[in-house]
Write a protein that binds this DNA or RNA. Sequence first.
DNA 1: CGATCTGTTGAAGTGAGTCAATAGTGGTGG
DNA 2: CCACCACTATTGACTCACTTCAACAGATCG
Lengths: 244, 244
Amino acid sequence: MATHITAGRGTRPLPDENPCVACEVREFAVCGALDPEELAQLSALMTQVMVEAQGTVLCEGDPATFLFNIVEGTIRVHKLLPDGRRQITGFLYPGDFLGLAVHDSYAYSAEAITDSRLCRFPRDDFYTLMRQMPRLEQRLLGMASNELIEAQDQILLLGRKTAQEKIASFFLMISRRAARRGQPENPIHLPMGRTDIADFLGLTTETVSRTFTQLKTSHVIRLLENSQVLLADQGALSSIAQGQ
Amino acid sequence: MATHITAGRGTRPLPDENPCVACEVREFAVCGALDPEELAQLSALMTQVMVEAQGTVLCEGDPATFLFNIVEGTIRVHKLLPDGRRQITGFLYPGDFLGLAVHDSYAYSAEAITDSRLCRFPRDDFYTLMRQMPRLEQRLLGMASNELIEAQDQILLLGRKTAQEKIASFFLMISRRAARRGQPENPIHLPMGRTDIADFLGLTTETVSRTFTQLKTSHVIRLLENSQVLLADQGALSSIAQGQ
DNA sequence: CGATCTGTTGAAGTGAGTCAATAGTGGTGG
DNA sequence: CCACCACTATTGACTCACTTCAACAGATCG
């Protein structure tokens, strides 16, 4: 049966039955494809874990023992070069799945940006169950397909866009993803710091900061309190993101 | 039943039965997962098409009517910005599948670099069949997973590597992929021109050319005739690719 | 209230891009 | 078979977008 581990056990009593039934992100997540019976089987494998801000979820090179489903919080996924250069390959939000691109060991590290709650599944058990649930496998294939499309957009961004275009594209991506989760698409919230944004866009913190200022000065965005950014002129932002 | 269209019909008589049985790339391709019965069903959907060098396989934005399996030749997949900047997101070789990251319309264009032969499947029929063949779906999920891992490597390369590191990584990737297809891993063959390499690595042709010359001068590679490159010092190449 | 961390701004440097000329390479036809 | 053309690759000189290095400004917190 699903259990909580680490901090936060007593924050809210879980229903005696299946905790997944009441899950708020289920419709966006892998588990959204399952019927109640299948959901019960999957939840039987599941352990909920809390990871506090800046904590590690998994490490590049470690044996891939677990797969995760993000329920609350924001996760950053990154790869490192031996000399310490870092590339963030993605930010994960509630409903996102962590472990699609996994073989025997993790090819990337993942850390929590904010305090986060995740559903954790033993990889082997998950795969076994997947073999028995075509709908689960189809859903994962669909999610993998989406991630590939996003990865190719990111490849275009990194290979061919200027700093301004990268930042504008980034704002729009965050906005679109918030909308997909049913949250307001504007203003957007940026839980990650300038360094994370820089390492995601292949820039430096200084360039990110300067570009924010430029967009602010030209009234395309406005920086609000609490790491919120108002997209004041979405048309202009779209134009910039696509290179005019 | 499978048929040839366009040029090349008479090059070699197909067996009367299932042409896929004798296919040389089947073990590397999607179809490698199927039993003879399933293979026959899949091949019933299939049409072989020839695309000559520089010809178009599919166009970004077009309705995604077909999926493809590369049998012979090399394909480049790219995305364009409105002003014409191009990013090549991948090179496809025999055994590779074209259409994993596809929704209703193609999110990229694909062109043949050399004369190519492809197996073409109507997308809807392919998906229908996939629902009935768990092994096909599993295989596709595995291939999507591999592609995601490669995409993340490419993201690291584009975001954080220098020109030298990009070129060195590129040589090693081509070498590794040749080995995976059972071809010699050294010397490598580069069917694509400098412009393609530049647009794949987020560089210009000039920088690609200069970097080739640097690596040649430092005896890490040697340029042979017929677009072949000898990786003279693979250790040095690996060191460079990872940033020393 | 100082200490620490994150973000912003300034000044100077540089890796790769741009522009331009030259050198191969392969194809075609007289 | 060679002369010509078109195209791709190489090399050189110069420029620039972004980085690097450095100083400073806010926020957060014990």
